[in-house]
Each structure stands twice: as structure tokens, then as C-alpha cells.
């Protein structure tokens, strides 16, 4: 107490004011970041009549599980979409991570002569590209990948931004270690899998999560390349449900309910919860990796 600087009183007054304003500002940010989620969750647990009468609100009105019952009465469509999303996410993440890590490892090796030229070969694609039309025509017409899972996985398997972040993780692998392993007769593959990969574990987790999130949230590829309903991933199915009444009509016909009696508003919101729920549940555990990835990307990207 006695060591405090005389100016401390004045400073702490302005600091107090700042703290109050700061807390208000942060609370406001927090509120607005959470509110849309609350609106959706509460709507999904409300009864359709209450929503039609009072509109959406922050808390459930006339608590009801009708919308969820409706979705899970005939769960085939949802289960199938979950299956597609999980399959694409798992395969895409494993392959994407492997290819990204391998490439980043080679490009991070200081003794690899053409690393800069090849890095630029990758980087150039972010500077200049043919856009949606070129890719679309090429994939549909020349690769014939319409309605195939390959079109959901391969076009986005390599992301140059993640490649660069991964490269900076890989740079932490000391070259002396690689060289001594070489002297001991280890093959390049063995060095990669048994030395580089374990040392870059943090990078693998971070980039793996970014890739997985992209695949899980992807609807763009599905919109362009998948016309078969049974092959739609979860996000695109949700999109279809929110934006059209077709899905409603289909559901009502299998459920033997007239379209008029469908809990369509709450059903849309329940579907949003079902589709997003798993991602939100893991979010608290993985958030720190994303922050780390963004930080590294900002500095080195």
C-alpha cells in the first residue's frame, strides 16, 4: 500500500471508469455472439403454435419436443446426412492432414534445394485462379465427378494457408536430428513418420482441426457437385430445409402429416441444432488450438 505512487489515485480512477466501460463492452460482445444460438435452441424447443403467435424468442415458449420427435420419427434422412458428413470429414481430414504434413515437411527442409520454387508453385494458386466456373466445368465435364464423394473431398484437400502454417510448425524439427537419423541409415519416410511427425504434434492437431472444421461446415461443394439427396452432407441438408419447402413436403409425406400441420418453423430450428450441436459441443475443448493456429498464421502466413 505504502509503495504506491502518488499518481496512482488519479490513474486508478480513470482505470475504474475504463474497467466499467470495458466490462460493458465485452458483455455486449458476448451477448451478441451468443444470442443467435439461444434464439435457435429456444425456438427448437418451443411449440409451433407459440412461435406462430409470438415469434422467436430468447426462451422456449410452451416447451415442446415436437420438432425433434418429427426429425427422429423417420431418422433415415438425418442419419444418412450425418453419415455423409462424418465420412467426408474423417477421410478428408486424414488424407488432407497427411498430404499437408508431408508437403510442409519437405518444404521446411533447409537442405531441400527447390523449396522456394515449389512453395511458390502452391502459393500462386491463391494469387490467381480461374474461379468457380473453371473448376466447375473441369470437375463435372472432364473428371466426371458429379455425384461422387470424391468431389466433396479432393478439390479442397490442400489449403495453401494451412500448408504454410504447417511449414512453420515443421521448421521446429531440427535439421541436425534429421541428419543424424540419415547417418544411422533411416529412410526419408521413416524420418518423416517417426521423427518429424511426433515433433510436430501440436501443428498436426491444430491444422487437423482446421481441416476437419472446413469439411464439417462445407456445403459449397455439395451445392455444386451433388444433386442426389441421399449423398448430401448435413450442412447442405440443413440449408435445403431452411431455404425451401420441398424438404417439408417430403417429410410430411413420409410422416403422414399434412404440410399444414407440420411444425415447420420449429423443425427448421431443431434441424439447425441437430446439425450444429456436435461441433458446438467440442468447441470448448478445441478452441485454444484454433486460436493458436490463427496466431501463427497471422505472423507467418
Amino acid at each position: 500500500m505504502s509503495k504506491k505512487h502518488p499518481n496512482r489515485i488519479r490513474a486508478s480512477n480513470s482505470m475504474k471508469l475504463f474497467q466499467v466501460l470495458g466490462y460493458l463492452f465485452l458483455l455486449l460482445i458476448g451477448f451478441f455472439c451468443l444470442v443467435p444460438f439461444l434464439l435457435i435452441v429456444s425456438a427448437s424447443f418451443s411449440s409451433e403454435t407459440a412461435i406462430t403467435r409470438n415469434g422467436f424468442s430468447l426462451f422456449p415458449q410452451e416447451f415442446s419436443l415436437e420438432a425433434y420427435k418429427m426429425i427422429f420419427r423417420f431418422p433415415d434422412a438425418v442419419v444418412q446426412a450425418y453419415g455423409v458428413s462424418i465420412f467426408v470429414t474423417v477421410v478428408g481430414t486424414v488424407l488432407g492432414l497427411l498430404v499437408t504434413a508431408m508437403t510442409a515437411y519437405v518444404l521446411s527442409r533447409p537442405d531441400f534445394k527447390y523449396r522456394n520454387q515449389i512453395s511458390f508453385f502452391f502459393y500462386f494458386t491463391t494469387l490467381f485462379n480461374g474461379g468457380m466456373v473453371c473448376t466447375y466445368i473441369f470437375i463435372i465435364r472432364y473428371l466426371q465427378l458429379k455425384n461422387s464423394y470424391a468431389s466433396l473431398i479432393f478439390p479442397t484437400l490442400i489449403d495453401v494457408f494451412y500448408l504454410l502454417i504447417m511449414r512453420s510448425f515443421m521448421k521446429a524439427v531440427p535439421i541436425s536430428l534429421i541428419e543424424s537419423a540419415k547417418l544411422d541409415g533411416a529412410s526419408e519416410y521413416r524420418i518423416f513418420f517417426q521423427i518429424a511427425l511426433p515433433l510436430a504434434k501440436a501443428g498436426l492437431v491444430t491444422i487437423g482441426l482446421f481441416i476437419a472444421l472446413n469439411y464439417w461446415n462445407d456445403w459449397y461443394n455439395a451445392m455444386l457437385y451433388i444433386s442426389k439427396r441421399s449423398m448430401w452432407p448435413l450442412q447442405y441438408m440443413l440449408y435445403d430445409m431452411i431455404s425451401s419447402t420441398q424438404m417439408m413436403a417430403q417429410l410430411s409425406s413420409v410422416a403422414n402429416v399434412s404440410v399444414m400441420n407440420m411444425p415447420s418453423q420449429t423443425l427448421r430450428m431443431a434441424m439447425a441444432v441437430v446439425a450444429t450441436g456436435p461441433a458446438i459441443l467440442v468447441y470448448p475443448f478445441v478452441q485454444k488450438y484454433f486460436v493458436k493456429g490463427v496466431t501463427i498464421g497471422a505472423v507467418k502466413g
Binding site: 460482445i29 458476448g30 444460438f37 461446415n217 440443413l238 478452441q287
Partner: peptide, 12 residues
């Protein structure tokens, strides 16, 4: 909490 919106898809 502020990072959460980045995490969800544009569909949501």
C-alpha cells in the same frame, strides 16, 4: 465466446 461465430457454418 467471441470466437464461436467463426466456428459455425454460414448455413447456420
Amino acid at each position: 465466446v467471441s470466437f464461436l461465430p467463426y466456428f459455425v457454418s454460414w448455413i447456420l
